[in-house]
Design a protein around this nucleic acid. Structure first.
Lengths: 233, 233
DNA sequence: ACAAAAGTGTTTGGAATACACCCATGC
DNA sequence: GCATGGGTGTATTCCAAACACTTTTGT
């Protein structure tokens, strides 16, 4: 198009990145996957995986690409939080970032955590180090978004293995919402939603009564959602 | 900084705009403020007020600036929805937009609506014309966001005058949530929240019993929110 | 048999719903 | 006095919270 070049020079074009807050659950605590920066600015500081968006990809595609490149994580639940556009959030030049959050089954990716081959590492949510850029404010938005969201959509299952015990599920909800539930009432409420499939097998090698595994009935949930059903936890 | 130029050329820099979905309430229906495009592309089509972001302003500042320039609306409740980054959403070149929504007291701005001096016009939510770009998908995100939000935060008051009747408030909630409430139960629930201040004066010149005005107790709400109180409507 | 966590039922209080009557005002 | 919408009270239903005992398993 003839006007394209003219148009490009007429308006300011900022740098745009994507960043991804990755939540994982280790059975007891909510964790965040961070990578240690190897370049200036903020060299050595921990930050969310992310990078510059490319011309032929949407923001979400970019976030998934960066996530895979930097941490090996792929095929996960991911949603946009929002854009962060503070004028001085990057010391090099002005950079606008589009932030996402992802929920991963930590057990699938435990190779990444803690080893020295990669600069990626899981951190418990209450032990997050000082972060680069404005990533702590992104984190706080991500946390409150997750808290909100889990009360109306069953996204918690994205953080658990395909089969899980009721206690694991409860601990997950308690970690995210930072409140405690009565075990018996939690059971009832969860089962009454009728979205859990009780499995035959149980947790092996326990020194007490073995807990039954459940799996999440995704098909049924989608079906109910279709009918305008509103989950409330 | 020496590296800035090098850095700028290394990564692709997209055009970035801000767009604003402006909600107003006329006493019976939820309305959206649109402007008619005077330029290609989509010349003649209706679109949200918006424009290119400037180098020294945040996205929200840009959205407020454009809003004021194009419609005269200022000092309103505004929040970011999210970024829209579809690769082909603008035919000229790739443009990423950061979408906001705003809630305005329509009575303050009725000058704008319907006259021919301006290209801005209010449209009832169920009579929205075909929109430019991907603005209908932005609208649908805005609508569902508003529905969600109003159930947990008293943002409805941003759409009403400082004083309003209970029936007006109910009609507003019904318009947004697209459900009907029992008048008596709505009264009780609203009053039980203890966030409404009953005023002395009443609606004049009615052909029936005059309705009392209320005002929203913003201070009290902020105070309660501070204490971790969770509104549920 | 005992420790430790799983699994289950009942009671109770409070909130949401459903529902009906009187009040004020203009015509 | 009547039509119109405003303002209030009560009974019922349902859901959430509080709470205790039995079961399974390994040691």
């Amino acid at each position: 198009m003839a006007t394209t070049k003219e148009f490009r020079s007429k308006y300011w074009h900022p740098a745009v990145t994507v960043d991804c807050v990755i939540f994982g659950f280790d059975g007891a605590n909510l964790n965040i996957l961070l990578i240690q920066r190897g370049l200036e600015p903020y060299i050595g500081r921990w930050a969310f995986p992310g990078g510059f968006i490319k011309e032929k990809e949407t923001a979400e595609e970019g976030a998934r690409r960066e996530l895979k490149e930097e941490t090996g994580v792929e095929n996960v639940f991911m949603e946009q939080l929002r854009a962060f556009s503070g004028v001085d959030r990057d010391p090099r030049e002005r950079v606008i970032t589009i932030a996402f959050y992802a929920l991963v089954k930590l057990s699938d990716y435990n190779v990444i955590g803690g080893d020295d081959a990669s600069k990626a590492q899981w951190f418990r949510i209450h032990e997050i180090p000082e972060l680069a850029f404005d990533h702590d404010s992104i984190l706080s938005v991500a946390m409150s978004h997750l808290k909100q969201k889990i009360q109306f959509e069953p996204i918690g299952f994205e953080l658990l293995s395909d089969k899980f015990t009721m206690t694991q599920l409860q601990t997950l909800y308690e970690s995210i919402l930072e409140i405690r539930f009565d075990r018996r009432n939690f059971y009832k409420k969860m089962l009454s939603l009728d979205l859990l499939i009780p499995l035959e097998d149980k947790v092996p090698n326990t020194s007490h009564r073995a807990a039954r595994y459940f799996s999440f009935n995704r098909e049924k949930y989608l079906e109910l959602k279709e009918k305008g059903f509103r989950l409330e936890f």
